[in-house]
Each structure stands twice: as C-alpha cells, then as structure tokens.
Design a protein around this nucleic acid. Sequence first.
DNA 1: TCATTGATATTG
DNA 2: AATATCAATGAT
Length: 203
Amino acid sequence: MSAGRLAVEPLAAARLLLGASLTCRGVAATIVEVEAYGGVPAGPWPDPAAHSYRGPTPRNTVMFGPPGRLYTYRSYGMHVCANVVCGPDGTAAAVLLRAAVVDAGESLARSRRGETIPGAALARGPGNLCSALGITMDDNGIDLLDPAGPVHLELGGPLPAHTGPRVGVSQAADRPWRLWAPGRPEVSAYRRSPRAPAPGASD
DNA sequence: TCATTGATATTG
DNA sequence: AATATCAATGAT
C-alpha cells in the first residue's frame, strides 16, 4: 500500500526517506542522510556504482524485488549497511541509509555502539547506523512496511534536502545522489573515495 | 593517510 | 583456484 510510494526513481525515493523514521529492536531513529543507487545498464537508471549494475546475484537479489524491502550487505568484511529497495518490482534500485538521529532508546543504542560515543555519532555512517539499531545480515529481505516486522519504516518527512556527490564509490562519484538534512550534526562528513577519479574528470 | 577484514565477483 | 575490489570506520 504505502510501498507504492517507493515504487519510484531512486532520487525521488531518497527524498521520501529523508525524515522517515526507522524503528528496530528498541531504538527509534529519524533518517537524515541517504544515498540513491540505480541498477543495470539497460534499465531506467543505469548506475555503475550500484551493486545491482552487473545483474542479479545471490547477494543482491532483493534489490530486484518489490519496493519497501530491506537490502543488507556486509562492507569491508566488518560493517553491515542497510538499503531500502525502491522502484517497481523487477527493477533494481535502492537507497542506502547513511545516518539517523536516535529519538528513543538511546541507552540501548549506546550499549551497542560503545558507552563513550557522543549522541550525534550513534547512528552516523551506514555501518554505525546498523550497529546502533541492531540491524544484521539476517534481516536481509524483510518487509520494512510490515508493522509487525523486526525493522519498521514509517514514511514521515519529507525534510528539506541538500544534495551532493556520493561517498565511497569509485564510479559515477560525481552524481549528486547523496541527500542530507542541512545543519544536522548527525550527518556524516563528506569523504570522497580515494579510488574515485578527480572531481569533474571526464574519463 | 593507513590498517583492518571477509565476502563477493571476476579472471585464468 | 587465485586475485582484485569494495556503497566503511577508527586510529594515527
């Protein structure tokens, strides 16, 4: 039902998700930073930086499924990152959740992240966000719009958004598909991938 | 700026 | 089978 609102292009879905609230295992948080990702070369949103670019694999199949599902992957062997699948069923696209404000369950989040972590840093960065909320690889593929599910998404916002280049990707790094809520200390500092070509390079 | 870390995808 | 590549983080 409300999943239909996510059956749209990645950038539009990203705007919807800014300001949405995410609840998981005792922690509620408001999303303040996201990154949009597209899909295969022949699709509507070709994106060489997307995991789905080279077609379906065992890892990324959920990105090719219906919108509103959770796609989790392990990054650099140590972090879990969470994406919300968007676009119509059968078309790969997703939005990476990069940072959130912890609204409730702060002590629980701190017990997962470390007792000395400042509040603004609890869910800053995609790996830290999953850690604070207790999202694991076992949650891959679940329906985020099911209120009875372990991870629940409530579309709220949208918040006013600033846009800029994506973080961490070595391909199509200049595409302005990173969105954040301006002025929030929870937003992660921008850091271009060391592997990305110089800004504006035609290549 | 660099080490960490392991799954995944690609190549031979 | 072997190698290269990360949608990252924290410390230095």
